[in-house]
Design a protein around this nucleic acid. Sequence first.
DNA 1: CACCCTAGTAAAAGTCTCTTGACATAGCGT
DNA 2: ACGCTATGTCAAGAGACTTTTACTAGGGTG
Lengths: 73, 73
Amino acid sequence: MPEGRIMNRIRYLRFINGEMTQEQLAEKAGCTRQTIIALEQRKYHPSLLLAFRIARALGQGIEDVFQYEEQGG
Amino acid sequence: MPEGRIMNRIRYLRFINGEMTQEQLAEKAGCTRQTIIALEQRKYHPSLLLAFRIARALGQGIEDVFQYEEQGG
DNA sequence: CACCCTAGTAAAAGTCTCTTGACATAGCGT
DNA sequence: ACGCTATGTCAAGAGACTTTTACTAGGGTG
């Protein structure tokens, strides 16, 4: 698959939402703490399903949490 | 990962956008025709990256193309 | 110091996503 | 009938995502 960066504001939104810990977010989103750590450090992109769950857990829409930047424009 | 359905309107939006064929959408989104077929038939969910690329190829936001339905309410 | 909480690192294993290639079906025009 | 286009099926394999487990380290509290 071609390039295109995805940025995320998970860490930022975690603190806006009452200082949630990684573990609290993980539990609310239904994944493990490891996954949250990896995403905050941009080790990889989440699946669409997990992206939705994290966005909802943070009280946001997907595109408020994850921003796609096209490369060619 | 827990449940939660993701519906998509790829096929519908393909026709709204000037009767795009699966192959045209695939090329514009940077994936293969097989992948478009699988997604339209909901064989699996796309990655977040591909979801963004498909949404952009269809001139839409992610949540206009993919709808997440929580199970517990 | 001893204890707990939060965050980070690492590796193995399993599941899911995506591609490639070959083949099948249906419609449409000639 | 023949060729062309659009859609669909199947299978194998590579690569990406996620979990599990174990371990390290800093900060605060008693």
